[in-house]
Design a binder for these strands. Sequence first.
DNA 1: ATGAAAGCGCTAACAC
DNA 2: GTGTTAGCGCTTTCAT
Lengths: 335, 335
Amino acid sequence: MSATIKDIAKAVGVNPSTVSRVINGTASISEETREKINQAMKELDYHPNSLARSLVNGSTFTIGLVIDAGNKDAFSNAFFIQSVIAIETAAQTKGYSVLITNHSLSDSNNIKTLVQERKVDGIILPVQCMTDELICLMTANKFPFVVMGEPQLKKEEIFWVDVDNEQGSRQAVDCLIRSAYRRPMLLVEDKKTIFESKRIKGFERECEAKGIQSPSVHAFSEERIDEFLNEILEGKRDTDSFICSNNIIAYKVLKALKAKKLDVPRQIGVITFDNYPLAEYMEPALSVVDVDTYKMGETAAELLLKAISGKEKKAKSQLIEAKIIERDSTRLKQK
Amino acid sequence: MSATIKDIAKAVGVNPSTVSRVINGTASISEETREKINQAMKELDYHPNSLARSLVNGSTFTIGLVIDAGNKDAFSNAFFIQSVIAIETAAQTKGYSVLITNHSLSDSNNIKTLVQERKVDGIILPVQCMTDELICLMTANKFPFVVMGEPQLKKEEIFWVDVDNEQGSRQAVDCLIRSAYRRPMLLVEDKKTIFESKRIKGFERECEAKGIQSPSVHAFSEERIDEFLNEILEGKRDTDSFICSNNIIAYKVLKALKAKKLDVPRQIGVITFDNYPLAEYMEPALSVVDVDTYKMGETAAELLLKAISGKEKKAKSQLIEAKIIERDSTRLKQK
DNA sequence: ATGAAAGCGCTAACAC
DNA sequence: GTGTTAGCGCTTTCAT
């Protein structure tokens, strides 16, 4: 067994509390004994037992991170890992550890256990995992938590961080216009997620700002794209660029465009949300609306840590800006 | 503050130890008091404090998972997250939590802290994070750990799990031969990692087994592929299929083949390691050597848990089989 | 079947 | 500046 505070107290011939004091710098200690104690700690290879410490301090110096195992979508998972690393790094910087737990839709017991058994001082969780029950439990216990992704409900009362999807969308339109495209179309998933609606909103607003009449937004499907492309070829539709809500859509759009022998970027521009590794290897290299998921995780962690320390009392939210990375698929003619 | 064992003891009018006993089922208790205690626990919404428990039991019921933040490739890819989820799930099933810590090459202090401060009962770590110092520390403290990925050194003395790269490679050759290809070429990264060498070994052995003379293995580069393709077109080279060591290589090979108007799978077959989401959307859909990273994580966790419980004394290793997922890029003619 | 008491390793309030 | 003591919430002998 490893050395305890008692062992080193005995070795030096002082009281355990004195040792504790030099460890925590919590009182003034004579130079001499401090020296001796430090010495002994090295010799006996002493390391404080974090458990005992936590027990008496009433805080674990650990934060919980819920990962959404149910979400098989490998992309959004790959996406998530950057956040995980960011959270861990930010936590570690402040002396906190990160405990993960995965959330199965069937029950949120593991999460509840985390807060009830006081294993962690606070929690970061994805919106999808946010149930009413959980919120109640946590607010009732005054248990700090921050949500990743904008919540639909109670968004004024809880801490959350999210990507600024609206601004990302506006940027995409902007980028297209700057490259002299005139009629962008936004292609989204069929699901009505909140971030899709933000993207739609941003798209419509920016189109309006740029004087584009009745901007077109469509749920993506392979058949539909084919129709659109035919209409473009027949001169019945003036769409000259696509904003895709994710990489898969972008990939399929590119494929369809190739099949119809429409040149990207010369005839049609393409830009997509999410900067996955393959985007830059595409033919042509895809321009993207890149989301700094690292920063998102970092922000979440910092927010949580503030909430834990009580520095941040009132609920607060933060939006992470999206940035455009221009590659070949939108370089019609730069202004 | 939440209820403690004392509170419920008081409420029922028994001694705290009795309560502890019914919680743990560690002694026979009269039906009556058990009832009353359970009742009180519900009413007061009692949940045991894991910290206090750990302190007295001397074990944290938590395992540490080291993630290699430095390795942008492996982890920005969906690969690792599957293992993480598997580890968490397996751990949870046995009542364990998972603490993550990221490893920066600069120092392994966070990992050391984990073991020294007794925050976890055991550790799972990627080979890349395995330093001599760490191994010494852990073996000296009899601290259980399992390595993900085959270690170069001391592989007999430590617990590890890995993908069976050799078998994966053999399978790939097999798959190609089965589809009537005759001359596969293995394309690897330039780095001499241990798993590349296993893949090479497997490739060479299986080629030999199938009677293929002097099998060709090459480090991938875009220029080189161009040369090879030219030679094939000129009839100077009899390669009729490629086994790619990762998705990026495969993607670039596909691109080069298209540029030369070589038909896949009819003229050339392509199969690649790693089943990333886009593989199936490629044109043609890529056949892959798929690695069950979920199972790998699960196995690692189970091994660690056994080591922790002392059920598995002697170091043990386990190889996870790779499976072929045949898609269009190798369907020359099925036998 | 249950109570009393000690103790896990540490911190903190109170002495002196 | 340092010792004494109590206690964080729980488990576990040792009694009875």
